[in-house]
């Protein structure tokens, strides 16, 4: 069973999974693997690692700056794969999902990227600007090495499309909680709850929710309806504000701990 499946089946009916996002190589390449371990110790169930891109169009200012900091140090897609491999040496179980944009992946080549990701211990990949319509080659490359292809759903996604996206996805479905970019401040919890119900009607996959979850309170509320909550910008901001790498790791871990302790546990399956 894949690491993602294991985590979701272990938590099913008990608790929503917590997936923190960090940008690979932010604040420094050598910090990423230790930071990933610290987040796992703080309660992360899986990790999402951003692959830096010069033009991250779906990201708000916090993650844009994270990408720029990483790129300024020469962090490449290959370097991020190495960071995951470093993490994997000491953690065999926590799923790692890469999130990035398609041009660096195409530049490496879909097959090469898929193979190297799999060898590094990556479990799933989200390519933000590659909708399923353009993803046939990528999906074939990923499934060939057992990588999950995680596609996004958005508030603007029609019901028909949801079913098609679900059919192209594996691992879980990522519901984008708001119209906008990562880290935006206009999350409407009630609307997301309603939308997730309609997503469940067309999929048997676990449903993760991300974009705009900025604090423990909103994470806890969405945890009642989602199988995973993904928190990115609020963590990346704490990394940016730290005086140095050690403080960045401490602050990010403390924040993830607070998110985790706010997540409600369930006695019985709510579904």
């Amino acid at each position: 069973m894949s690491r993602l499946k294991t985590v979701f089946s272990k938590l099913k009916g008990r608790r929503c999974a917590l997936i923190p996002f960090i940008t690979g190589g932010d604040p420094a390449a050598s910090v990423t693997a230790p930071l990933m371990h610290a987040l796992v110790r703080a309660g992360a169930d899986a990790l999402e690692v951003g692959m830096p891109f010069s033009d991250p169009m779906a990201d708000g200012p916090a993650i844009q700056m994270g990408h720029q900091r990483a790129l300024a140090q020469g962090v490449t897609t290959q370097a991020v794969l190495q960071m995951v491999a470093d993490f994997r040496r000491d953690d065999e179980t926590t799923p790692v999902i890469l999130m990035g944009y398609v041009n660096p992946v195409e530049t490496m080549g879909y097959d090469v990227f898929a193979r190297r990701s799999s060898e590094a211990g990556v479990d799933g990949v989200i390519l933000v600007d590659l909708p399923p319509e353009e993803a046939q080659v990528w999906r074939a490359a990923a499934s060939g090495v057992g990588l999950d292809t995680i596609f996004l759903l958005a508030p603007t996604t029609t019901r028909d499309r949801m079913a098609r996206i679900s059919a192209a996805s594996s691992g879980f479905l990522y519901y984008v909680a708001l119209k906008g970019v990562t880290g935006a401040g206009h999350l409407d919890i009630g609307e997301v709850e309603a939308k997730i119900a309609s997503v469940r009607a067309v999929t048997g996959l676990p449903v993760g929710v991300g974009f705009g979850i900025r604090d423990a309170e909103s994470a806890a509320q969405l945890a009642k309806v989602a199988d995973a909550v993904i928190v990115g910008s609020a963590i990346v901001e704490r990394i940016a504000q730290a005086a140095g790498p050690d403080e960045a790791v401490r602050n990010a871990a403390a924040f993830v701990r607070s998110l985790r302790s706010a997540l409600p546990t369930r006695e019985a399956s709510p579904v």
């Binding site: 169009m57 779906a58 398609v102 933000v128 600007d129 590659l130 909708p131 319509e133 353009e134 596609f151 996004l152 759903l153 958005a154 508030p155 603007t156 996604t157 029609t158 499309r161 996206i165 984008v176 119209k179 906008g180």
Partner: peptide
Amino acid sequence: ERGHFGVYGGQFVAETLMGPL
């Protein structure tokens, strides 16, 4: 019909924009 000029063109955007497009 999906906006391809040979291998070029297409729609490479985040999901939020697919419906509006």
